[in-house]
Nucleic acid binder design. Structure first.
Length: 410
DNA sequence: TAGGCCATCTGGTCCT
DNA sequence: AGGACCAGATGGCCTA
């Protein structure tokens, strides 16, 4: 029997990664402890393997044996359906494992199959080796095996795997960066968005921002068009602005006031000293300019994720009939998470339905914000999404965040 | 226990 | 030729 200790050292990557721990701490201990496995009778260096790694190593060894053709997989085409394949493999794993035990010599000639997971940096050279060494392979393929030794092929495979891991880690880092700018609360008790949920949320968030930009553009055009048609002082046109009664303004009066103090564009009307009073513009404040301000605030609120139900209630008092309507029509915005995005719908629900796993982080986000007394960082679509989920199924929104620490390899 | 999500390995393809 | 990218397969972990 080959001593399994140190068999992971053949990797070209870091030693830590060669052990394939699920966390760095898993590979810290390296005490000289050997445990006899009661299934195969093989000695397993427990000290080298983290908790739970024995089973993983066992499975990995099984996989390596299967892939290497040492063990014939009796499962018909076990690669067609992953679920079925997994179940069938799990059902027969013990049987196969006994078969592994009879193949102890395999271990001695494949010393780098000691990875706990049986995957990480376990350079199964069966791909390059077997495939490229077949005489039936094209010349280009054969040349690979002709130019490289077995050891070089292993190193090559290890390098390829390492690059792929790094690539996926970069992708995950980018995903985390994207999550950071997403309008949902983050916290220790909030599970982070899944990848698909992150992308879906990002798409709809961008759509929402684009819509705000378009509204701003339209408003500025109106300002330029009608700016010269308003009399000095604005008269009644420059009168009370309903923005002061807007819930966003009321709840953010302090911020608005602060912005006024630092803005050369906005001043507090002398006749209305109260910070919640009406806004006027210096010089000749036109109603359209005021509307621009109000809409800018509304757009900013929308960009900040403030519920658009409030924004849609923003009605501008203007003497001109063409301006008497709301600049923010209340059509429902696209859902941040729509059924089509996630591909999960319920036939009996015509409205939005979010698959629970995808919605849970959003719901937790709201709960987290609420519990902290902070204003929920949400959008109307988000609220709609969550409320629809709440009406559909119940979730435990206080469950701890899932430990999805990655990368496993540093 | 089933299903979701994820990391990893792997081989193929495309690009520089 | 080597690297990037992609998709399939697989197993682990977690939750409902």
């Amino acid at each position: 029997m080959s001593n399994l200790r140190g068999l992971c050292s053949t990797s070209t990557t870091s030693p830590a990664s060669s052990c394939s721990p699920t966390s760095e701490s898993e590979c810290v201990e390296n005490v000289d402890v050997v445990e006899d496995d009661n299934v195969t009778g093989m000695s397993i260096p427990r000290g080298f393997l983290p908790v739970g790694a024995v089973s993983r190593w066992r499975d990995g060894l099984l996989k390596g044996s299967l892939d290497a053709g040492k063990i014939r997989d009796t499962t018909p085409d076990h690669r067609i359906n992953s679920t079925e394949a997994r179940d069938s493999r799990r059902n027969s794993i013990e049987e196969k494992y006994h078969e592994i035990g009879r193949l102890s010599g395999y271990i001695e000639e494949n010393d780098d199959l000691c990875s706990p997971t049986g995957k990480d940096d376990t350079v199964h050279t069966h791909g390059l080796n077997l495939k490229y060494s077949q005489h039936s392979q094209p010349d280009a393929k054969r040349s690979v095996s002709a130019r490289y030794s077995q050891e070089e092929l292993r190193e090559l495979r290890s390098k390829i795997n390492s690059r792929e891991r790094r690539r996926m880690h970069d992708l995950n880092s980018a995903m985390d960066s994207l999550r950071d700018v997403m309008p949902y609360a983050k916290g220790p008790s909030v599970r982070k968005l899944s990848k698909i949920a992150t992308l879906t949320l990002a798409r709809n968030y961008i759509q929402m921002l684009n819509k705000s930009v378009e509204e701003m553009k339209q408003l500025l055009e109106d300002v330029y068009r009608s700016g010269g048609n308003v009399g000095p002082g604005g008269g009644s046109a420059g009168g009370p602005l309903s923005l002061s009664h807007h819930p966003y303004y009321l709840s953010h009066a302090g911020k608005v006031q602060q912005q006024q103090q630092h803005s050369s564009f906005l001043t507090t009307h002398p006749g209305h000293p109260h910070p919640h009073s009406h806004l006027t513009l210096p010089g000749s404040p036109s109603s359209t300019q005021i509307q621009a301000v109000s809409l800018a605030a509304a757009a900013a609120a929308a960009a900040a994720g403030f519920p658009q139900t409030h924004l849609s209630s923003l009605q501008l008092h203007h003497p001109h009939p063409q301006h008497s309507h709301s600049y923010l029509p209340p059509p429902p915005p696209p859902p941040l998470l729509s059924s089509s995005d996630h591909g999960t719908t319920t036939p009996h629900q015509s409205h939005l339905y979010i698959h629970p796993p995808a919605a849970a982080p959003l719901q937790q986000s709201l709960a987290y914000s609420s519990s902290r007394g902070s204003e929920p960082v949400s959008s109307p679509s988000l609220l709609q999404a969550v409320s629809s989920v709440q009406s559909t199924r119940s979730f435990n929104i206080t469950r701890p965040a899932r430990d999805t620490t990655y990368p496993r390899h540093q």
